[in-house]
Design a protein around this nucleic acid. Sequence first.
DNA 1: ATACTAATTCGATGACCATCGATTTAGTTT
DNA 2: AAACTAAATCGATGGTCATCGAATTAGTAT
Lengths: 189, 189
Amino acid sequence: MNTKSISDELLEFFKALADANRLKIVGLLSQKGFTVEQLAAMLELRPSTVSHHLSRLARAGLVSARAEGYYSVYELETDALEDMARRLLSREELPAVAAGIDLDAFDRKVVADFSLPDGRLETIPAQRKKLLAILRHIVADFRFGSRYGEKRVNEILARHHEDTATLRREMVGAGLLQREAGKYWRPAS
Amino acid sequence: MNTKSISDELLEFFKALADANRLKIVGLLSQKGFTVEQLAAMLELRPSTVSHHLSRLARAGLVSARAEGYYSVYELETDALEDMARRLLSREELPAVAAGIDLDAFDRKVVADFSLPDGRLETIPAQRKKLLAILRHIVADFRFGSRYGEKRVNEILARHHEDTATLRREMVGAGLLQREAGKYWRPAS
DNA sequence: ATACTAATTCGATGACCATCGATTTAGTTT
DNA sequence: AAACTAAATCGATGGTCATCGAATTAGTAT
């Protein structure tokens, strides 16, 4: 309600400029101010249409109106435009747009696709990317700092799939579990 | 056909980013490369939809694909994005968008609105802005460098409207004609 | 106060396009 | 070669929005 999110603001900005006639309006206003009538004549549009475009540009903060006698003269807010351009260069803005998007959604989808109703795996995926997603899911059953014997490891893996040998080998291969002297553990990070 | 105009290029750019999901895609790709599948899972869209979005972004030069095993990994073309942002700051780009737009269209429309079929004025506009448009039109009948007597001035003005006194006074008031010692001329510039 | 005028708002219409499911394509693995 | 899979393409559908004309508003001039 109150503060508009960064994404919304960016979106509003791009949508405002994503129209040929609005781009032309901005181009014209970059030279000097114009009235609605003048713009309508130059663009061969109806004043009502131009008014609509100007209000969209104004919502995005790109233009502002100044009353002058009969007319209202519209002018370009060059500062707002430069601000936006600079923000695009800032390298912090774009990642912010993706903030809040669940990066693990893919893993979860893969797990769901390969899981039976009881939570066990129907099959072990052959494709590398999906196998890794599954393995990342399984490794959550191991605690950091604990050391497991091979028998205990197999018990845990068996909750997901009977082929514990394959799972164990892949877990180690992917670096999700480490092994030394017959003991397994989950490496930090 | 050959070269895409500056306006078209800018428009393509803005339209590519004027969609919430495409903005999110750009935000995600600003962190690392992703496959169509992964993006689809994260955005909760169908792969075909994501593919469509990516092709639009690619048309605008904002992303590119790299084949990797089964998948094609999409990556952000950060250079293209920075180029665009810099162009927006350049202060030469926007006026170029308006290039080719007829700045005199307003004047011509006013002249047309107030002219009778025979080319003479129906009335002299009361509004300042429109009166000036008419006067600028009429002054084209006077040559630079010539000096006109009042009688000759009236003859020329009478081609447009019978009230030559008003026209003459307004022309001088607007600075379109200058007068000294009973002679009139059209000042340079 | 009355008349006039530019601008805005409103309702309707048509075009564009985001999205989907189905199909096809390109490329990989066995 | 055959089987498989991610991605791309296609056709259909629904929603958004540019555009217009008509009605309304705000503000100026007579």
